[in-house]
């Protein structure tokens, strides 16, 4: 494992911890898209189907369990916890799941490396992860008021994707036959979706003003 991959995983982990911190300690999910969180739960559930049958490393198994567990507990918190659900901005979080899930499923059925249940589900999870942030980005744009933790959560998620691209570049040059078009293209699209957010994030950081996305 190279430094970019590890940094990417740690950034991903940090994003989840920031979100859990916000939800668990402040008991608020204001500005957080439940749709995006449900899509992430679906992403991990379909990607880690082989968690108990295909052993890679202790590290991988633990991280998979953390991502699965945190994704589902975040969804549970927002839907069921009596304090947290009150802060959920339902009226602005209106993105429809099936606009995202259905095209990804169809694409995975059409474009994959191998037509088996596991590989198609794995491919589906890659496509879905690429666009799962969309409801969150739409919600941020509609919410005039982005709090620090929400801004940091989205920034860390974007940073995780950018680091994964560096990881692929590194692996391409250091490992023989390391070519993965499906992963790369969906990963690149996923990272590009953050470009706009990154721009305004750095602007607000540089000018030391509150983060706000233009309508």
């Amino acid at each position: 494992m190279n430094i970019f991959r590890l940094a990417g995983d740690m950034t991903h982990l940090a994003s989840v911890l920031v979100l859990l911190l916000k939800i668990h300690t402040i008991k608020s999910c204001a500005g957080i898209s439940l749709k995006t969180q449900e899509l992430y739960a679906l992403v991990f559930a379909s990607r880690y189907l082989d968690i108990f049958t295909h052993y890679v490393s202790f590290y991988n198994t633990v991280m998979k369990l953390i991502f699965l567990g945190s994704a589902f507990s975040i969804v549970w918190y927002i839907r069921r916890h009596k304090l947290v659900r009150r802060s959920y901005d339902k009226d602005h979080d209106t993105f429809r799941h099936y606009f995202i899930v259905l095209p990804c499923l169809i694409l995975a059925l059409l474009i994959h490396e191998k037509f088996t249940f596991r590989v198609v589900m794995w491919t589906f999870s890659l496509y879905l992860e690429a666009v799962a942030i969309l409801p969150q980005l739409v919600l941020l744009q509609r919410t005039r008021n982005i709090d620090n933790l929400t801004g940091q959560y989205v920034f860390l998620l974007g940073a995780y994707r950018a680091l994964y691209i560096l990881n692929w570049v590194y692996r391409y040059f250091t490992e023989p036959h390391y070519v993965h078009w499906i992963t790369w293209i969906s990963g690149l699209i996923q990272t590009l979706l953050y470009a706009d957010f990154f721009y305004y994030y750095f602007q607000s950081w540089k000018n030391n003003v509150k983060l706000e996305l233009p309508a």
Binding site: H12, D50, N60, M63, Y164, N167, V179, T183
Partner: peptide, 10 residues
């Protein structure tokens, strides 16, 4: 490690 699998990634 490679040969058509990035499944060692998360």
């Amino acid at each position: 490690t490679s040969n058509g699998s990035t499944k060692d990634e998360l």
